[in-house]
């Protein structure tokens, strides 16, 4: 990744303009051809610096207002298997294993999005039944203080 890539990310991370040729202005700014702008974005996706290039959705506006972080205590030997099952649930948008802490035994995290809290709870319950993991807590988000996405 060079300086141009960095500038390109900075110019696009808050969203491209909704105009017929959205990459034209960016190309002018970077003093490279428009096609190079596109090639560079594709290369950044290829190399994993960009996960995807596309729309971020305001899911709250779509009525998907319940957002639960469900944390599970899963035996280390079962993490791989259980993580795969959780990831298979459509309501689970993100699923990670995270480090345990002395005061915090939970190591698997599933973010559940749904229209209501009851739906989130039902999904967590279904996951529990599917995996046999019963040591879990559901932490709903009561307030969103910040959500900018990753920026540089």
């Amino acid at each position: 990744m060079d300086d141009l890539d960095l500038k390109l990310i900075k110019l696009t991370q808050d969203g491209i303009d909704l105009v017929p040729d959205p990459f034209k202005e960016i190309a002018l700014e970077l003093a490279i051809p428009e096609t190079e702008v596109i090639d560079r974005i594709e290369a950044l996706v290829e190399r994993g610096a960009i996960r995807r290039f596309g729309a971020s959705i305001g899911h709250r506006v779509l009525g998907i207002v319940a957002n639960a972080m469900c944390v599970w205590n899963v035996h280390d030997d079962r993490v791989e298997e259980v993580g795969a099952v959780m990831a298979g649930f459509g309501e689970v948008s993100h699923c990670y294993e995270r480090m345990r802490c002395p005061e915090w035994d939970y190591n698997l995290y599933a973010m559940i999005h749904a229209h209501t809290r009851e739906e989130c709870e039902r999904t967590a319950h279904d996951i529990s039944r599917a995996t046999g993991i019963s040591d879990y807590i559901i932490l709903f988000s009561e307030k969103e203080f910040k959500k900018t996405g990753v920026r540089i």
């Binding site: 990744m1 960009i50 990753v150 540089i152």
Partner: peptide, 22 residues
């Protein structure tokens, strides 16, 4: 109306050489 927040790159901190945590 806020259904689309933006159209752009969704960045991968690690892929950019960075580090992240919760």
């Amino acid at each position: 109306i806020g259904v689309i927040r933006r159209i752009g790159p969704i960045l991968n901190t690690k892929g950019l050489g960075g580090a992240s945590t919760l």
